[in-house]
């Protein structure tokens, strides 16, 4: 597991769907955006392989928090998004700008 809760990350700005048949669980609207790890969610077989019936290695999964207004410029400041993202879609990010590492009030699922 590469990231701990509170780590600053960025979603890889990559578009494999332009390169041929694939199955991706990282929404297009988040590619390239800064986020913060809310909590690790355990490791799960990679759906990008499962979708094609290939052997699937387990990949760490994280709940990642994003600022709502950064996404479409429409949301209300202070509103957020929480999205499950697999580790290979995340990269380190220097902690400047983007969502901060404040802990949320909500308590949630621990990793299995």
């Amino acid at each position: 597991m590469r990231f701990a809760a509170g780590s600053a990350v960025r979603v890889r700005r990559d578009f494999p769907e332009t390169r041929g048949p694939c199955h991706i669980r990282t929404p297009h609207y988040l590619r390239g955006l800064p986020g913060v790890i809310e909590r690790p969610l355990g490791a799960h077989p990679n759906p990008e392989d499962l979708a094609f019936g290939r052997p699937a290695a387990k990949v760490p999964l994280y709940h990642v928090r994003f600022d709502q207004p950064a996404l479409f410029g429409e949301g209300r400041p202070g509103d957020t998004l929480l999205v499950e993202i697999y580790e290979h879609w995340l990269e380190d990010r220097p902690m400047t700008g983007g969502p901060t590492a404040r802990r949320s009030e909500s308590v949630g699922q621990e990793t299995a």
Binding site: P27, L81, L82
Partner: peptide, 10 residues
């Protein structure tokens, strides 16, 4: 704070 949870994975 409105927190939208996009259910994408497991």
């Amino acid at each position: 704070e409105l927190r939208v949870v996009d259910s994408t994975a497991d």
